[in-house]
Write a protein that binds this DNA or RNA. Structure first.
Length: 373
RNA sequence: GCCCCCAUGGUCUAGUGGUUAGGACACAGCCCUUUCAAGGCUAUAACUCGAGUUCGAGUCUCGAUGGGGGCACCA
């Protein structure tokens, strides 16, 4: 029993209260003294008496042998004055009752594990095996915590990450398979994972690398599966188009599902772009070449019977060859006029196929108009 | 303040006494290419410091420094 007053919360700065509280002043109260205090109407807590000497040692599967001097341990409260057990006490009892054999938890519990063990010993219970895991830090080195606004697993899913990619990434934080593989399916991870290869130092969480890994997982997705997952990200404006075709085009280009809406926006809303976009040194495109090409290509496309990616590509390739253009030079103004963007998911003919003949011709004419002197 | 843990490029890591210190992300360049991605190639970049032990230390020992965590009638 301990009848001491509740200690005031330790001050933020120096907190001498901690050191002084190690040993409970009430630990040697006699039966009479206890009875007397009850008679005064005092309400006690129950503390565990920790030996004043010796040390407590245990072996962790990751960190090896850990020893803490008993003098470092508080006479910890087991039952609070309201009669409820403390977390630590309840935890030990609960784990024992549930016949827990292995405790796997964060490294922050490493130095308090001895006091759990002392409790197990006091009850004569079997001490479980311990596996303490290195902590995950933020990139600035601070501890990752939801209170500080760091994302949870669910948040990451919300942000467009695949659960298996998140698990894959986190597994790599403090563990490696011993070879140079990094990308794992759940099954492969289960197969390869081994507690023995967990390392001891904490790791910084890199959203950048998770993003890359997520992209790898997305690309490896079965196209049909990808399409199903992508479906809910497609905005209303794009739903009249062939969504499966769009899915095939964007699967290899996105790293997060949340990129989809902005990536496909141009399909239903042609951006207001500048004619300068038609100039591109890499494809040897100039304003003039672009104008000439659009002028000739529009009637050519108007006469097309079969409107598919393949037929369009063949026709345009022949067109380029006939006029002495590089394919890139011929395609650039078309792609640009169709997307209104410097970059797009899919090339000229893929976009034409997707948009359909009418919309393609409409956009090409808009582009040509921008190029008229 | 006391105690515990950790320490290889900016980040994640391989490495268990002898290596040109390997890989990945990011960055830069090149190739490929109907744009962008993806893919391929190349480049830049690391053993925290100081003493030992040893013929020889990233690797073993000790110390320092740095970082993280824990020290509640909270869970």
């Amino acid at each position: 029993y301990c009848f001491c007053k509740k200690e005031a919360q330790p001050d933020n700065e120096e907190s001498p209260g901690i050191a002084e509280q190690k040993r409970d002043p009430c630990r040697f109260l006699t039966q009479e003294q206890v009875t007397a205090r009850f008679a005064e109407g005092l309400i006690p807590v129950i503390r565990q008496r920790i030996p004043n000497q010796g040390s407590t040692t245990f072996v962790d599967h990751v960190y090896g042998e850990i020893t803490v001097e008993n003098t470092q341990l508080d006479d910890q409260v087991l039952l609070k004055s309201d009669g409820f057990p403390t977390y630590n006490f309840a935890n030990v009892v609960d784990d024992h009752l549930m016949e827990i054999t292995h405790v796997i938890r964060g490294q922050e519990y490493l130095s308090s594990t001895p006091k759990y063990n002392l409790l197990y010993q006091a009850f004569g219970w079997q001490i479980p095996e311990y596996v303490h895991l290195p902590l995950i830090l933020r990139e600035d080195g601070a501890k990752l915590s939801k209170r500080a606004g760091d994302p949870s697993f669910e948040d990451l899913v919300q942000m467009g990450f695949l659960p298996e990619a998140i698990v894959n990434y986190v597994a790599l934080l403090g563990w490696n398979p011993g070879d140079e593989r990094e990308i794992f399916t759940m099954e492969e991870l289960i197969e390869a994972f081994d507690i023995e290869r967990i390392n001891k130092s904490s790791a910084a969480f890199s959203l950048e690398k998770l993003t890359w890994l997520n992209g790898e997982h997305i690309r490896r997705l079965d196209p049909q599966k990808f399409h199903e997952l992508a479906l809910k990200y497609y905005p209303e404006g794009v739903r009249h188009l062939d969504l499966e075709k769009i899915s095939r085009l964007i699967q290899i280009r996105i790293e997060r599902f949340t990129e989809i809406p902005t990536m496909v926006k141009f399909l239903y809303e042609l951006p207001d772009y500048d004619a300068a976009l038609f100039e591109n040194p890499k494809s040897k495109s100039t304003l003039q070449s672009s104008r000439e090409i659009l002028q000739e290509v529009i009637p050519l496309l108007e006469s097309m019977q079969e409107w598919t990616n393949e037929s369009l590509f063949t026709a345009l390739k022949d067109f380029a060859a006939a006029h002495g253009y590089k394919i890139g030079t011929a395609m650039w103004p078309i792609r640009t006029a169709l997307s209104g963007q410097f970059a797009s998911p899919g090339g000229a003919t893929e976009l034409a196929d997707l948009l359909g003949k009418d919309e393609t011709l409409r956009r090409l004419k808009i582009g040509l108009a921008k190029l008229q002197p």
